[in-house]
Amino acid sequence: MKKYKYAIEVKNLTKKFETFAVNDVSFKIKKGEIFAFLGPNGAGKTTTINMITTLLRPTSGSIKVAGYDTVKHPNDVRNIIGIVFQDSTLDRELTAYENLYIHGRIYGYRGDDLKNRINSMLKFVELENHANKVVKTFSGGMKRRLEIARSLIHNPEILFLDEPTIGLDPQTRSHIWEYIERMKKEYNMTIFLTTHYMEEAESLADRIAIIDNGKIIAIGTVDELKSMIGNDMIYLKFANNLDSECVKNILNILNEHFGNSNIINGIFEIRVKNANESIPKIFEIALKNSWKILEVSYRKPTLNDVFIHLTGKSIRERGGNFDMKKIFAKRRGML
């Protein structure tokens, strides 16, 4: 086995389709680390994974996986990586066992060794009772679990998980998180995962790269990222519909006292060191200016706040959900 310090080294990676899908991205992933790409749909996460896993050729830049260049030595790279793609790549017509069997044979395993591997992996993802069922009949969660089992059959050193819990119910999702944590613990695997769920990145990853529009806009541990935006957030909602003059006025006053104030979707956001101390102060100011506050809430910063801080938009708004919101709003308006 080759010795290497960095499981993955990406330098100035760029992929251009009609526009830049991935634009001058560089990062390093240490051996044994869980590294997450966090970003909205269409940010370039899957394109990056496809390039690292030798499925796509970069337009420019270089990628080394366990020291092997992905363009010059694709088969060396393919040998030591396991991948769970975002969309299922199972053979639906075959049984769970057959899917794993074919995978194992292709990666050079056979006989009793392969049989044992298949059985222990099926057990790992708790599908041992479904070994001889045709995959077509599986639920989304079962398919994802089988796919994880398959990606582990050939004992990869580096595992890629592209949106591992997209479209799954919360229960299955926490199940899959458990597997991921166990994989790291039991096999000391390096794991590269992409996600647009902040909780997922936050609870699993040692380090996170926030990606938007094909560029990495921040990289670090959860704490490092959160420290970029100070501490607590206070949200204010006012009673009446404010005109833009009024909004400007309020923002000015808030900025005077606290700095870092903002308005998003009609809700004022104020970034402070300590919300408990600042909220009474806000009421004082409100009283003085005779503002009518309807709602006050506060929370500790999340990765979404970091994302908003960096891009001006929330992760969800960037993705498909935003359009749905618009459509619903339109519908309501028509009714």
Binding site: L55, N75, R78, I83, T89
Partner: peptide, 13 residues
Amino acid sequence: DYGFLKEILVAPV
């Protein structure tokens, strides 16, 4: 369509 082709394309064969 169902993605199985990718499974072959990333295999070291």
